[in-house]
Amino acid sequence: MSTPPGGSNPDQTRHDIQQTRAELGETISALTAKTDVKTRARTKTTSAVGGLRQRVTQAGQSAKTRATKLAHTMSQKTSQRATSVKQDSQHTIGTVRGSLRAGAQTTGKAESTLITSARAATVKIGSLVRTKPVPALAATGTAAALAIVAYRRRRFR
């Protein structure tokens, strides 16, 4: 009995053939996948859309965080300004009351001083409110920022 060249037996040859066929099948599958343009395009599109969604979500979260911080900061500033205006008003009221007491003790000249003091206090309070409109603007800006964030979140869902 003669043996094929290389000294292998028929079972070994069959095994080699099966292994070669399996490798050839894998090679053909890889080539088919590379030539399937439609599937490759879908895969790229899916990954691009996923990345875009992730970036949009991160941007939305970042905007929400910024809006929350801004609202908090503006709330603090508004509170500080309101306290300042309240203190100024109390000081002015004290001054007016002092002038009123002095006016009650004196003649018409004291009354005109009282009226002048009251008018000056009114002008001072009015100018304080006009020169520091930030609390009203801060509330408006915060509301607008939150509305934009809410609109974008609904739009991208």
Score class of each variant (00 low, 15 high):
residue 124 K to R: 14
residue 68 T to K: 03
residue 109 K to D: 15
residue 106 T to R: 07
residue 152 R to G: 11
residue 135 P to N: 07
residue 58 Q to Y: 05
residue 69 K to Q: 10
residue 16 D to A: 11
residue 71 A to L: 03
residue 17 I to M: 07
residue 8 S to I: 11
residue 124 K to C: 08
residue 122 T to H: 12
residue 10 P to W: 00
residue 109 K to C: 04
residue 2 S to L: 13
residue 149 V to P: 03
residue 2 S to K: 11
residue 142 T to H: 01
residue 101 R to K: 11
residue 100 L to N: 04
residue 135 P to W: 09
residue 17 I to H: 06
residue 1 M to T: 11
residue 86 K to W: 07
residue 36 D to L: 09
residue 38 K to F: 14
residue 96 V to N: 04
residue 151 Y to L: 12
residue 23 E to F: 14
residue 117 S to D: 09
residue 62 S to M: 05
residue 22 A to K: 02
residue 103 G to K: 02
residue 120 A to C: 05
residue 35 T to K: 04
residue 51 G to V: 00
residue 70 L to N: 08
residue 39 T to G: 12
residue 8 S to W: 04
residue 91 H to K: 06
residue 61 Q to T: 11
residue 74 M to K: 02
residue 21 R to G: 08
residue 148 I to Q: 13
residue 124 K to H: 12
residue 19 Q to F: 13
residue 68 T to G: 00
residue 63 A to W: 01
residue 134 V to E: 05
residue 8 S to Q: 08
residue 80 Q to C: 06
residue 14 R to V: 03
residue 127 S to L: 11
residue 145 A to C: 01
residue 54 Q to G: 06
residue 28 I to H: 12
residue 62 S to P: 02
residue 78 T to M: 06
residue 9 N to P: 04
residue 91 H to E: 01
residue 74 M to W: 01
residue 131 T to P: 01
residue 132 K to M: 08
residue 51 G to K: 10
residue 125 I to C: 10
residue 120 A to Y: 04
residue 19 Q to V: 05
residue 110 A to C: 02
residue 122 T to D: 13
residue 144 A to Y: 12
residue 47 S to G: 06
residue 125 I to W: 09
residue 148 I to R: 09
residue 152 R to A: 12
residue 79 S to P: 02
residue 40 R to M: 08
residue 102 A to K: 08
residue 23 E to P: 01
residue 79 S to T: 06
residue 16 D to C: 02
residue 137 L to R: 10
residue 143 A to I: 04
residue 65 T to K: 08
residue 26 E to K: 09
residue 101 R to Y: 14
residue 14 R to N: 01
residue 12 Q to W: 07
residue 73 T to A: 11
residue 124 K to F: 14
residue 99 S to C: 00
residue 142 T to P: 02
residue 115 I to T: 12
residue 47 S to Q: 09
residue 87 Q to I: 06
residue 97 R to T: 10
residue 104 A to L: 15
residue 15 H to F: 12
residue 51 G to I: 00
residue 47 S to V: 09
residue 77 K to H: 04
residue 93 I to W: 07
residue 118 A to M: 03
residue 42 R to Q: 04
residue 80 Q to I: 10
residue 87 Q to Y: 01
residue 82 A to V: 12
residue 13 T to Y: 05
residue 146 L to H: 04
